[in-house]
Design a protein around this nucleic acid. Sequence first.
DNA 1: GCCAACGTTGGC
DNA 2: GCCAACGTTGGC
Length: 151
Amino acid sequence: MRYWLMKSEPSDVSIDDLAAMPEQSVAWYGVRNYQARNFMRDQMQPGDKVLFYHSSCAEPGIAGLAEVSTPAYPDATQFDPENKYFDAKATAETPRWFNVDVKLVKKTRLMPLSEIRGYPELAGMRILQKGNRLSITPVDPAEYRFIVKHL
DNA sequence: GCCAACGTTGGC
DNA sequence: GCCAACGTTGGC
C-alpha cells in the first residue's frame, strides 16, 4: 500500500464536490504530465491512501482524506475533441493518458500549506520543495501518519 | 497579475 | 541530441 498527495483546484473539483459525487468518487481526469501519469498507471493500487490537496486557490492545503478506488484506465477526456484535455495524438488503441478513480474517505479541517511548512517532520515532502509542480506526489508513510494525527 | 521554475516542442 | 522559445503551474 502506498501513500499519495493529489492536487485538485477547488474551482474544478473541491473536497465538497467530491463529497457530493455519486459514490463520493471521481475520475482523476486531466493529468497531462508523464511522471504523474506513470504514478497512476504503474504504481497506484486500489486502497492506496490519498491526501486531497487544494491548489491554485486562496487557501492552498490539505482538505481531506481519500483512497484510490480503481486501477488506472484510459482517461476519457483525451478522446473528446470538445474537451479541453483532448489529445489529438491519443487513440483508443494507443491511449496516452490514464487515470484512477478517487473516493472520499473523509473531509477534514483544512491544513494550510503554511502550517505544513512549519512542521520539521514534513520538511521532506515534495510539495514543499522549490519549484515542485507535480500534481501527484508520493508521500512517506511516516509523513502521512503525522499529517493524519494532526488533522 | 506577477514571476520563478519546470516541462515540452521543434528547428537545426 | 542540443537548446531556445514557449506554455503551464501554482504560490503569493
